[in-house]
């Protein structure tokens, strides 16, 4: 068998890789395997793939043709296309327009449910809990567990009252 990488030498190292949840066999000669290291990486570039999932593709320009850049860490969207990693927390804000379609494709929903840091502000906590409760309410109604649904509804009212009050206070 001939090496898959150089196409010249006899392949002596046989790897089974998982790509896209399929097992693929890779055959390499010793020198190619050494070059690639024992951790022979998958062939497609995950980062490019990730960036291409966003509608803007890898060009990263806004409507005016200007380069999209994070004002906090000065990372450009092009950089993100290359590395697949954002530069700082604010990149999420500056690249929102292009990240949203990407997130829609790689994630289940666009809204977080679940754990919230203890230090998050009261309102932030309430808003996450409210979303959680609405989800659970829907499930309870579908499953016809009305007693639990009533309890959840009460808690929703309670939280909504609190949010209203704190809104007034702020005004």
């Amino acid at each position: 068998m001939i090496c898959n990488a150089c196409g010249q030498n006899e392949a002596t190292i046989h790897l089974t890789e998982i790509m896209n949840n399929q097992m693929v066999e890779v055959h390499l000669c010793e020198s190619c395997a050494e070059q690639k290291g024992s951790d022979f990486k998958t062939h497609f570039d995950f980062n490019k793939l990730l960036a291409s999932l966003s509608d803007i593709g890898v060009t990263g320009r806004d409507e005016a043709g200007e380069k999209l850049t994070c004002k906090t860490c000065s990372m450009s969207y092009e950089d993100f296309g290359r590395t697949g990693r954002l530069g700082c927390a604010d990149c999420y804000r500056f690249f929102e327009r292009v990240l949203t379609p990407l997130l829609k494709r790689v994630q289940r929903e666009l809204r977080h449910v679940g754990k919230v840091p203890a230090k998050a502000t009261g309102e932030m906590k309430w808003s996450v809990e409210l979303r959680d409760l609405h989800e659970r309410l829907k499930k309870c109604i579908a499953a016809e567990t009305f007693e639990e649904a009533a309890q959840i509804r009460d808690r929703i009212h309670q939280l909504e009252e609190r949010v209203k009050k704190s809104d007034k206070k702020q005004k």
Partner: peptide, 13 residues
């Protein structure tokens, strides 16, 4: 932490 995106990470995945 972000209100709607949750814990922010370097990779959006």
């Amino acid at each position: 932490f972000h209100e709607s995106l949750g814990y922010l990470t370097a990779c959006p995945t």
